[in-house]
Design a protein around this nucleic acid. Structure first.
Lengths: 236, 236
DNA sequence: GCGGAGCTTCCTGCATGCAAGACGTACGTA
DNA sequence: TACGTACGTCTTGCATGCAGGAAGCTCCGC
């Protein structure tokens, strides 16, 4: 519900209205609120209570960069510590289907692409065999716009970002190659650069507010320049 | 209490005994248990309830490596995005005192060293100006043996690791230098290597079980080779 | 003697009542 | 008119009672 924009940023999450809204008692509600605070979507107040957290564009950029850092570490771990050939073959198979889907235009292909992209990243994290790393990544990728597939549905609607799907596929392929050759530094670097594709998408999306507003979690992002109609109002 | 070893690894944390032990009701206890699960010290069971989580030596190594990755990212952020000269001077001042304390032997100096080391790392993270990065690091550094000063009290008792204090001071100095010169890659690399000092300490400490057992959180670590008296029992 | 089913018992999760504290407001005074 | 104080209300946090469910044990049947 928070992601869907049913609560605005900075809004106080009082317990009693939520009890009336959700139909549950206060006890499980408090647990849920505490969990949302741990996930970073709510912020605890000093005198008790929670408010919906607000994310700046800088927060989103940091989250994307951090996802790249953590996924890069996962890639490096796999390269340094080795991976079964079977797992690498699985990654390649997934990526081959991704390549096919990246060249299609229909909505169903995008949905399949989204699913396979998630699977690729999840498989990679599983191969790293580091529960702590997986936990740290979950704490980052669950934030709005920070997940590996956050912008894919937007890409379906914006031809300007369609090419990014092609580049993403190449990143995946090179990443598999680097891991197989045990080139840890290259694997880490590639994974970071791969995540930075989302930065490009973020730039594109903030220029198309209509698409951005339809994305989940968009209501949590506070954009500094809230004047889309004015082209370049130089105050000087 | 978990860190002090009052609960053994894998022990089930039932609510009613804890209520009798702590003197609080079940409602705040449940919140505390949920928070400990988020912090990674407890693990939730499928049918409900929690058990004390067990950490392998590999978990500890991963946690230390991840701390290096995140602190390295913080150092890179500072180098790339710039830092006020005042903050850099503060780091230098802290590190100068650290150098003096690193050459002393008394226990009070070690305590001051520990405090200043924590302050140095906290100051660095503050300079990165990234709440998400700080949160991710907290989730890692709060685990047993993963914090930046986890082994310092052990170093006070083991001359074998005394030299590490000297090396740590040099790492700090080089890190400040790299940040000032805006050398992001070097800063990141140095911070990673700095964290890996803890890996050396871990190796030293596992050879001295008596020191290890006195460290907080030691009871949560499961060591695979639980046979310290046997020198090298080759089964062949 | 072994396996399965039923029962008992304990444990977790939820709903609700109560008290303490904080915030806002209104009134009185300087 | 502005500031301080006191009161009222709202909100959160805690304690407790109750119900659902799962695990363990025992007894019966094969």
């Amino acid at each position: 519900m928070i992601f869907n924009g049913e609560f605005s940023s900075g809004e106080r999450m009082s317990e009693l209205p939520l009890v009336a809204l959700l139909g549950v008692s206060r006890t499980p509600l408090r647990l849920a609120l505490a969990q949302l605070e741990h996930e970073g979507l709510l912020r605890g107040l000093a005198g008790g209570g929670y408010v919906v957290r607000e994310f700046t564009q800088g927060d989103v950029r940091d989250a994307i960069e951090l996802r790249g850092v953590l996924e890069g570490t996962a890639a490096r771990f796999i390269a340094e510590r080795g991976a079964p050939a079977r797992d690498l073959a699985g990654l390649r198979a997934t990526n081959q289907t991704i390549e096919v889907l990246a060249h299609r235009d229909d909505y169903e292909s995008f949905e399949r692409y989204l699913h396979l992209n998630e699977a690729f990243h999840a498989q990679l994290m599983k191969m790293a065999r580091s529960p702590l790393l997986a936990r740290a990544l979950e704490g980052i990728a669950s934030l709005p716009f920070a997940g590996p597939s956050a912008f894919i549905l937007a890409e379906a609607q914006l031809p300007a970002s369609r090419d990014i799907l092609i580049i993403a596929h190449r990143h995946h392929a090179d990443l598999i190659d680097a891991i197989e050759r045990r080139e840890g530094a290259r694997a880490e670097s590639l994974a970071r650069e791969h995540a930075r594709l989302a930065l490009s998408n973020l730039e594109i999306v903030v220029e198309h507010r209509d698409v951005l507003q339809r994305m989940p979690g968009a209501s949590l992002i506070s954009l500094p320049d809230a004047a889309p109609p004015a082209p370049a109002p130089d105050p000087a």
